[in-house]
Simulated assay, not measured.
Amino acid sequence: MRHMALTYVVTGANSGLGFATTKALTDRGGHVVMGVRDEKKGRAAQARLEKGSSEVRVVDLADLESVRAFAAGIERVDVLVNNAGVMAPPPTLSAQGFEVQFAVNHLAHFALTGLLLDRITDRVVTVSSVLHRKGRLRFDDLNAARGNQAYNQSKLANAVFGIELDRRLRASGQKIRSVLAHPGYAVTNLQAGVQEGLYRTLLLRLGNPILAVPAEQGARPTVFAATEPGVQGGQFIGPSGLGEMRGAPGVITPAPAASDPENGRRLWAVSEEMTGVRPGLGDPAAR
């Protein structure tokens, strides 16, 4: 009997870390549903893949209605990779009126995970950032942060969500794993959306040439988190080198704020309220 290839759903799959992740997964024989905002760019990226199989499907993560439509079209998924993101763009709101970085980087992936939960067979991988360590969740006004502060907040939200999802999956007795990953410091077109100014100049002209690794290397922790059989729920996979900037994938320790159960409960509740998606996983502390 022929073994069926694993099906992966990867958001932001047409460029940067998303494309590098998609290529690594298809090279391993996987089937990847490429979640992309622009179908033309998605098709062009798909044409660059050499092995495995893939399909292109459009999803605008800045619009929760688009996320719902995308999820409704997914029949089977073994591994969901919540990868796509935006970084320090000019002040922008999502279709539902939320600060766009929090909306795209966290809320859309919270909603997508919840909508697909009954079809996921193996694991959810949520891509955070080393900058989650600099983030702070402004529960009094999650839309207030701007620029790189909002980016750091959204990446902390990714980490809090991934760990809280693991808690709730374990408490409900499900075998699905929730795993976190971050790329270290990688060169991607995520940075092309950064608002003009000193931060963009330092990032693109100084930081990238000196410190950054190529997207293919930056994707290694995500691919490891998505494919290694021994990865456990709740683990955070990142580069093992100095400052978690580069190096072979390894298990890292998240910032204390990421593993704080109270942050997890509060973020889960507000995410359900903002997205209207309720994954059906109760609070373990309420049992």
Rank of each mutant, 00 (worst) to 15 (best):
T188Y: 02
E55M: 02
S259W: 11
I120W: 00
V213T: 14
D27T: 02
A157S: 11
T227W: 09
Q217G: 06
E273S: 11
V67M: 11
H109L: 12
H109W: 03
V33R: 02
A225S: 06
E50D: 14
Q153E: 14
K155P: 12
I163W: 12
G18T: 09
G276H: 03
L131G: 15
P279W: 10
F19C: 09
N263S: 07
R76G: 00
V124Q: 01
T275Q: 02
V59R: 01
R220H: 07
S53N: 07
Y8S: 06
R2H: 14
G264R: 06
P284S: 05
V56E: 04
V125S: 03
G280M: 08
A159W: 04
K134A: 14
P214A: 02
G147D: 10
N148E: 09
G16V: 02
A192H: 12
F224Q: 13
R57A: 13
L137D: 10
Y151H: 04
R133A: 15
A24R: 10
H109F: 03
Q191C: 04
E65P: 00
D63Q: 07
R170P: 11
V270P: 00
I210W: 04
G35A: 09
L137Y: 12
S154A: 13
G52A: 03
L180Y: 10
A248L: 13
G247K: 08
L116I: 02
V231I: 15
V187T: 14
R146Q: 12
L93I: 04
K23P: 04
A285H: 14
A226N: 05
G114T: 03
N14V: 03
P89A: 04
V67H: 06
V81F: 05
Y8H: 08
L180D: 01
I210D: 05
E196K: 07
L115S: 14
D63S: 06
D141V: 10
H31Y: 13
R177H: 07
G35L: 04
V160C: 06
A171V: 03
E196H: 09
G197C: 07
N263A: 05
G280T: 14
D63M: 11
L117Y: 02
R146Y: 00
V9G: 05
A269C: 10
D166H: 15
D283T: 06
R119I: 09
M4F: 12
V100M: 15
E216D: 12
R177K: 12
A212E: 11
V100I: 15
P183C: 07
E228S: 13
Q195T: 13
A159K: 00
L25Y: 11
G52Y: 07
G184N: 05
G243S: 04
V125H: 00
A5S: 15
